[in-house]
């Protein structure tokens, strides 16, 4: 129970950021001709931002199911990499049913918080970390779809930066302590900016993964991590 609550607490900032993003997704869905409940159903079953926006656009354009499948595959393929990283981070108590269930909640932000934990991640923590953002995401969609004009625009816009503020709060403290992490996040930021302004046809999700992979390879080459603890134990 303690772990579950800790997960929920760590999920609060994510949920706040999601609230504003899903709010605009709700508005967009209704504008694209979906009903309020269809918009909410998409958020409940997909729990992803870019993929949902693209999906709603394709539904509105009467695209084929194959196009829809292909678009989701390309936009969301980054999750495969993240869930691979998390598979290495999962505690031994993460048995098959837990893995099948928790996979549903691997978003960019939930991945980031889970993967930066010092200890192996246990299912209870993961469920708490997924539950609160899941509520924020679905609730925000419903509010946006049902009453897009209730909140003043300035407040929804200001909430949009909460998520990024949280990201900075995750990466800056370790970057202060480790030159390697500082170098990796700097390289990632520079590549991301270059891709954004000079290769602007590239989709945001793809550019993000490319920048992150290049920066991580850079880190692995110049700052390889020490041999893992298991290996050390084996030697001892």
């Amino acid at each position: 129970m303690h772990l579950f609550r800790r997960g929920m607490r760590d999920g609060i900032s994510i949920a706040l950021g999601y609230l504003s993003v899903s709010f605009s997704f709700g508005i967009l869905s209704v504008q694209s001709g979906l009903t309020v409940w269809q918009a909410v159903l998409i958020s409940l079953t997909n729990l992803t931002s870019a993929g949902q926006v693209a999906g709603v656009g394709l539904i509105a354009a009467n695209a084929s199911m194959f196009e829809l499948f292909l678009a989701e595959l390309v936009i969301n393929i980054r999750y495969a990499l993240m869930s691979l990283v998390l598979s290495q981070k999962a505690d031994a108590s993460f048995r098959m049913p837990h893995r099948l269930l928790a996979s549903y909640g691997i978003t960019d932000e939930i991945f980031a918080v889970a993967s930066i934990q010092k200890e192996p991640v246990k299912p209870a923590y993961m469920y708490g970390l997924i539950l609160v953002p899941f509520i924020g995401w679905s609730l925000g969609t419903w509010l946006g779809a049902a009453a897009g004009t209730i909140l003043p625009e300035q407040i929804t816009n200001a909430l949009g930066i909460a998520l990024y503020g949280m990201f900075l709060a995750i990466i800056l403290p370790p970057a202060r302590k480790s030159r390697a992490i500082l170098a990796v996040i700097s390289v990632a930021a520079v590549i991301s900016v270059l891709l954004h302004y000079f290769v602007s046809w590239m989709s945001g999700g793809f550019a993000m993964i490319l920048a992150a992979l290049a920066a991580s390879v850079f880190g692995a080459v110049f700052f390889p991590i020490p041999e893992n603890a298991d290996a050390k134990e084996a030697e001892a």
């Binding site: 990499l81 960019d108 993967s115 816009n157 949009g160 998520l163 990024y164 945001g204 991580s216 700052f223």
Partner: peptide, 28 residues
């Protein structure tokens, strides 16, 4: 060890690339 190193750095790199430059557009 090489793959482990990549996997170790990916979360930080993902967060950095997600934040910059998007944070400057986050409030419209």
């Amino acid at each position: 060890r090489f793959i482990q190193s990549i996997l170790y750095y990916i979360p930080y790199a993902v967060l950095s690339a997600m934040t910059i430059p998007s944070i400057f557009y986050a409030t419209q």
